[in-house]
Computed example of a mutant assay.
Amino acid sequence: MSTDYQQARVALGARLRELRFTCPGGRLTGRQLAQRLGWPGSKVSKLENGRQTATPEDLRAWADATDQPDVYPELAGRLAGFESHIRSWRRALANGFKPLHESLTAEIDRTSDIWIWEESVIPGLLQTSEYARHVIGRYAELLGVTSDIETAVRSRVRRQEWLYRPGRKVHVLMWEAALRSLISPPSVLAAQLDRLEGVLGMDTVELGVIPFTASVKIVPANGFWVLDDRLVVAEDWHAELWLDDADNVALYAKVWRTLNESAVYGAAAHNVINAARRALNQG
């Protein structure tokens, strides 16, 4: 977990402890507050010490139980402030894929240039609908979200309209593993690779591939997107990170440029894609 995120969580915990101490009816012990809330005492302790992230419902209950309901908007604002940077998949997908996709689409719509690095999957802006269905389905199975998959697929495909707008440019960088990972059946991956070859000539797409045989200066891991040098969106197993501070944006841009030194473009990229395509036919 990032230091900034943890510091914000500790600060929220300190504010919760302050509310418990300043309860209008008299200071409450942690055990007394837990009894009012119907929680185990350990939850009160974890929230106050920044070892657990509160939900909006937790914060509202805390404000009410300490007889200070008017403070809830402040608490909710604190939570929104640091969760806007690290979005737990569990929380983000509580209402299905649609809100999650809509928030990213809104950011992409106001972006002119995107730099993408993916180490093991074709980027969403270049995915076929069938490939997207398998990728989203795999994540849905892992996270226990079984509904709304078709809505997510349609949203991802519609997002690709961005590629056909004037003044837009996506700089895509992939490791060769992304061309070969069988996250979908071979026939679906074959169609996806055909799609990649089709976008190689587009004015709005710059596509580079790092072959397995290339020498690399850093480990080719941790996929991310950089939007207009103002926002980084990166994914981990537990959460999606939105980073908008200048230092982190600059760091991810440097990572992209460093990886790009090992990439091939044009005819050489076409050859790497073709090799992956032929390997499917031989399988």
Results as ranks from 00 to 15, higher is better:
D4I: 05
Q7R: 10
A8K: 05
A11C: 05
G13K: 07
L16W: 00
E18Q: 11
F21P: 00
C23T: 15
R27F: 06
L37E: 10
W39M: 06
W39D: 05
P40N: 05
G41K: 02
E48S: 04
R51K: 13
R51T: 01
Q52G: 04
T55R: 08
T55I: 05
P56I: 15
D58T: 13
L59D: 12
A65G: 06
Q68M: 09
Q68T: 11
A76G: 10
F82P: 13
H85C: 05
H85A: 11
R87F: 04
S103L: 14
S103K: 10
I108P: 00
R110N: 04
W117P: 15
I122L: 07
G124H: 00
S129L: 00
R133P: 13
H134N: 14
G137I: 13
S147Y: 01
D148P: 01
D148V: 14
E150L: 09
A152E: 00
Q160I: 07
W162C: 01
W162D: 05
L163G: 08
L163C: 15
G167H: 09
V170P: 12
L173W: 10
A178F: 15
R180Q: 05
P186W: 09
V188I: 11
L189P: 08
A190F: 12
L196A: 12
G198I: 00
I210N: 14
P211L: 03
A214I: 03
V216C: 15
N222I: 01
D228M: 03
D229A: 13
R230I: 06
E235C: 09
E235T: 01
L241W: 02
D245T: 07
T258R: 04
L259D: 09
E261D: 06
V264G: 03
A268F: 00
A269N: 06
R277P: 02
R278Y: 00
L280H: 14
Q282P: 00
